[in-house]
Design a binder for these strands. Sequence first.
DNA 1: TATCGTCCCCC
DNA 2: ATAAATGCGC
DNA 3: GGGGGACGATATCGCATTTAT
Length: 257
Amino acid sequence: MKIVSWNVNGLRAIMKKGFRESVEELNPDVLFLQETKMQEHQLEEEILLKDLGYTLTMHSGERKGYSSVAVYTRIPVDEIIKGSGIPEYDVEGRVLQVNVGDYAIFGIYFPNGGRGEERLAYKMKFYEDLLVKFDSLKKNGKKVIVTGDFNVAHEEIDLANPESNRKTSGFLDIEREWFTKLLSHGYVDVYRRENPDKVIYTWWDQRFRARDRNAGWRIDYFVVSENVLPEIIEVEIYNHIMGSDHCPLSLTLKGEQ
DNA sequence: TATCGTCCCCC
DNA sequence: ATAAATGCGC
DNA sequence: GGGGGACGATATCGCATTTAT
């Protein structure tokens, strides 16, 4: 089973920038998208990728053109849950959960904390509440996989300019400390585990042509509970795939499902 | 992200 | 119908 | 008076929406 996560920064926009071909290259069984910036009623046939064998499930925010997540599946799944169950978060369309066998697989667009104290508080509360949710599933014996746009670079190695971003949301101590806490609860940042010293990013600020100079951040992850580790075949970051200000990343597991 | 201006220290 | 202005991203 | 570092504000691009022309 190959799982891919990608913040597409507007699904309708990336549709005109080779999205279909990128999906064919990535060849995912489960494809989580963040920041689709669209609602169900705006769907068109070409977005569905029906002929590639996919079923599309969306969870949109109330506000048009804002946030929103989606998942394409082409394997049988037991259940797809839209939202976290916490209305305060679900009105913004940030969480999808796919249950397959023992797996609980989350595709999440964690909030951005850069527009004022209120949004930072919302982000931190979101972090804490979702960790509680992951823990309760793990406690019940589930294999928990969390992927998506975490909106935090964990360590200095995870962004090009750590010094000048110490006071920028995305590299604040409190945000980084939450990620450390997540790992301390028995979860693993799979890419960093396999590539301890690799300098690689998943997001580049489009305002300053940052991708040209590779002045980026690693803010998209696969974080899994420790009982998933024996099932992992490989984890990849597709730096060359264009169309969004983020690039996609994948996790391949043993077995058909 | 990169470039200003402001502030302040120290010569 | 097209253009300008707004909100958001981190 | 002026060099120079630390620090904060800000203009930048692109997507999608709403409002004006």
